[in-house]
């Protein structure tokens, strides 16, 4: 590695983290603003023009909050749990391909980990870790509501994760690769996998909503039932870290969905001509998906957690299996695989 590569890496890390932090802050703002508009309200409009400084105000407030740790809590795990949820959510983005540009006489791959050839496996492995943080947060708080929230999230995880995994398989088969860059490339040659794999796309979206604990699958925190679920005892920045995880995961899942099914950074005509538009194209797709996620939250009631398990095991999983089989059959008939 020469010095140029180190600089490149450091710059990319800083840019990615900054982008995620800003994305998180303004996703909370966007969500509040959009929800408000869905519901005949104004949303934040006091801090700064159009309330644009609201995320900063929230952040400042949370920093100055007293951090309470319940006396009966398992203190080490109580402190570790938010870190355990937040880190996986952050490191997933490393493998997302963003295209490459020529700059300073060298070709720079905009993605952090370059072209990891097992990108999909990496994503699946890393995203599943977050749930440990939730379960441990619920358990270590020594609070019955938090405990129920933690138990719910573990029950939830085993029921959607399989369907989610199978939803990854479709694009992998069609691109014949576990590398996300290859999957994006395959889509630029064929067409978006959302068109070729509509069922897989839908299963992915449903399972992904469950993965990130968003409405209508937000049982672990279910305000109306468990007050706040697993993070009921958390305050200050530790609470903010759970929020950070939730919103970062929203972004991450949207990025993955866009990459696997909506052509990733590639956009016909535009990115072919201006490669630097890649990240912006991805951003646009991600924003559309985020809008859908917020829209769903404004519209749908919450599923009961045993019903989510039924949905996962009895509906999503068989359909996902069938989808994989049909995809394989069609590909075989078309001679795409031997």
């Amino acid at each position: 590695m020469d010095a140029g590569m180190w600089i490149e890496l450091i710059v990319k890390v800083i840019v990615l983290i900054a982008a995620l932090l800003v994305g998180f802050a303004y996703l909370t703002y966007t969500e509040r603003k959009l929800l408000a508009r869905f519901q005949n309200r104004y949303g934040p409009n006091r801090a700064g023009p159009f309330g644009l400084l609201q995320p900063m105000a929230d952040g400042l407030k949370l920093i100055f909050k007293e951090e309470l740790i319940p006396e009966q809590a398992d203190k080490l795990i109580f402190i570790l749990a938010p870190i355990l949820t937040v880190v996986p959510a952050w490191i997933v983005l490393a493998v997302i391909p963003l295209g490459s540009i020529d700059l300073f006489g060298r070709t720079i791959n905009l993605s952090l980990a370059g072209d990891l050839n097992v990108g999909i496996l990496y994503i699946m492995a890393v995203t599943s870790i977050s749930v440990y943080g939730i379960v441990l947060a619920g358990w270590s708080s020594n609070n019955k509501y938090a405990m129920l929230g933690g138990i719910r999230s573990s029950a939830q995880m085993i029921s959607y994760e399989l369907a989610l995994g199978l939803a990854f398989v479709g694009p992998v088969m069609m691109a014949s690769s576990l590398s996300l860059a290859r999957i994006v490339e395959a889509q630029s040659q064929l067409m978006w996998f959302a068109v070729l794999q509509p069922i897989g796309f839908l299963i992915f979206l449903v399972a992904a909503l469950a993965e990130i604990n968003r409405a209508p699958f937000d049982m672990p925190e279910a305000e109306q039932e468990l007050t706040a679920g697993y993070h009921v005892e958390y305050s200050g920045m530790k609470f903010a870290m759970f929020m950070l995880t939730e919103y970062t995961k929203m972004i991450v899942v949207s990025v993955i969905a866009a990459t696997l099914y909506l052509g990733g950074f590639h956009m016909p005509f535009i990115t072919d001509r201006w490669p630097w538009m890649g990240p912006f194209m991805l951003l646009a797709k991600v924003f559309v998906l985020l809008f859908v996620i917020i829209w769903l939250r404004a519209t749908l009631p919450r599923v009961r957690y045993d019903q989510l398990m039924q949905l996962g095991w009895k509906i999503l999983l068989p359909i996902a299996f069938l989808n994989v089989c049909v995809t394989a059959g069609v590909m075989y008939l078309l001679g795409m695989i031997a």
Binding site: L35, Q39, A222, Q224, A298, T299, P301
Partner: peptide, 8 residues
């Protein structure tokens, strides 16, 4: 509806 989390 709010109890069922349909907040709008």
């Amino acid at each position: 509806a709010l109890d069922a989390a349909a907040m709008s």
